[in-house]
Amino acid sequence: MTSEPLLQVRDLKVHFPVRGGFWGRARGAVKAVDGVGLDVVRGETLGLVGESGCGKSTLGRALLRLVEPTAGSIRFDGQELTGQSQRQLRPLRRRMQLVFQDPYASLNPRMTVRDILGEPFAIHGLARGRGEREREVAALVDAMGLPREALDRYPHEFSGGQRQRIGIARAIALRPDLVVADEPISALDVSIQAQIVNLLVDLQRERGLTYVFIAHDLKIVEYVSTRVAVMYLGRIVELAPAADLYRRPRHPYTQALLSAVPVPDPGRARTRMLVPGEPPSPLNPPTGCAFHPRCPHAMERCRRETPPLYPLGAGHSAACFLAEGDAREVAPTPTSGGEAGVLAQPSSPG
């Protein structure tokens, strides 16, 4: 794995205007993503976690320009994506793909698997001739562990896990560099989830893929991720190598999330950190630290100032004033904008 970031995000914002009244004028904006900065290194898996509504799915789609950013910079393999037209982006589309959460809704019910998997090659002018395209499609079905007879069947004839395998096959058909997996297992049975996760890990190892893996299941994220970013109300509040984050979380919100993970041992004593209230509305976020209305350690400063991501060493950073003292012991990492600095080299994904 090289040290050159495949994806560089700086101060990314995605705001959705809220309109009302007779003339439909904008009366505010939902700040779904509000100043995110991060790097994704080629070959790694960056896990993205947080409560529902925190903006992680919007961030994942904005990285691929499927949702238009309001402000900020997205650089993919050295090329700036923001500001480019859809026609200019088309050559890059084959290198950036998305695995959707709902495998049934993401597949055309009127197309067979043969047509679904052959469509990317036709759109991008690859696999010349019908024979070559058929070979590519057959190889994808084999890689997914599906029988060849599946080629002439429709999406409704498959189970949820099989449909997700078809969605993954379509995503990797053109051998992309980056795959954003938007909660790829949340709609599946627990018995199938491990199979899909292991399939993604095997594909990464075989094809050198880079993942942004969005999920709610913190144990799955720990298993697949090289690093983990924790989002709260449109911002990244903690970013660290997976092993370090799970062993020593530094942000109170991350600590609360991890304390809620079920432990498969009824005799094991554990301390649950309860977070009062509900997440604030992204239409009217609180001033200062967005987590301060629910944080047990909130200070007056938290209500007035927004904490930056303090670098804590070894690629770990946290947006909490409680970490400021530790950050002073670490030389600050330069950044080209936004809140996140360039992180230390990640280890190979497990």
Score class of each variant (00 low, 15 high):
22 F>R: 14
22 F>C: 14
23 W>H: 00
23 W>S: 00
24 G>N: 02
24 G>T: 04
24 G>R: 01
25 R>G: 12
25 R>Q: 09
25 R>T: 13
26 A>G: 12
26 A>S: 15
27 R>F: 05
27 R>H: 10
27 R>S: 11
27 R>E: 13
28 G>R: 08
28 G>M: 13
28 G>F: 10
28 G>H: 08
28 G>A: 14
29 A>T: 09
29 A>D: 03
29 A>H: 03
30 V>W: 12
30 V>I: 15
30 V>P: 07
30 V>A: 11
31 K>Q: 12
31 K>M: 07
31 K>I: 11
32 A>E: 10
32 A>N: 08
32 A>C: 13
33 V>T: 13
33 V>D: 11
33 V>H: 03
34 D>K: 02
34 D>M: 04
34 D>N: 10
34 D>P: 02
35 G>C: 02
36 V>E: 08
36 V>L: 06
36 V>A: 09
37 G>F: 01
37 G>W: 03
37 G>V: 06
38 L>I: 14
38 L>Q: 07
39 D>Q: 09
39 D>T: 14
40 V>K: 00
40 V>P: 04
40 V>A: 04
40 V>H: 01
41 V>D: 04
41 V>I: 14
42 R>A: 14
42 R>H: 07
43 G>A: 11
43 G>L: 09
43 G>I: 13
43 G>W: 04
44 E>R: 00
44 E>H: 02
44 E>I: 05
45 T>V: 14
45 T>W: 02
45 T>H: 03
45 T>D: 07
45 T>K: 04
46 L>Q: 05
46 L>M: 09
47 G>H: 06
47 G>C: 12
47 G>K: 07
47 G>I: 15
48 L>P: 06
48 L>R: 03
48 L>Q: 07
48 L>K: 03
49 V>P: 06
49 V>L: 10
49 V>Q: 11
49 V>D: 12
50 G>K: 04
50 G>I: 09
50 G>A: 10
51 E>H: 14
51 E>D: 14
51 E>G: 14
52 S>G: 12
52 S>I: 15
52 S>P: 11
52 S>W: 11
53 G>V: 11
53 G>D: 05
53 G>I: 12
53 G>P: 02
54 C>L: 10
54 C>Y: 06
55 G>L: 05
56 K>W: 05
56 K>A: 09
57 S>Q: 13
57 S>G: 12
57 S>Y: 14
57 S>L: 13
58 T>V: 12
58 T>E: 01
58 T>K: 01
58 T>R: 00
58 T>P: 00
58 T>L: 00
58 T>I: 10
59 L>M: 13
59 L>W: 04
60 G>C: 06
60 G>P: 04
60 G>V: 11
61 R>N: 08
61 R>G: 10
61 R>M: 10
62 A>I: 03
62 A>H: 00
62 A>P: 00
62 A>E: 02
62 A>F: 01
62 A>K: 00
62 A>Q: 01
63 L>S: 09
63 L>C: 09
63 L>I: 08
63 L>G: 07
63 L>A: 08
63 L>P: 01
63 L>W: 02
64 L>K: 02
64 L>E: 06
64 L>S: 08
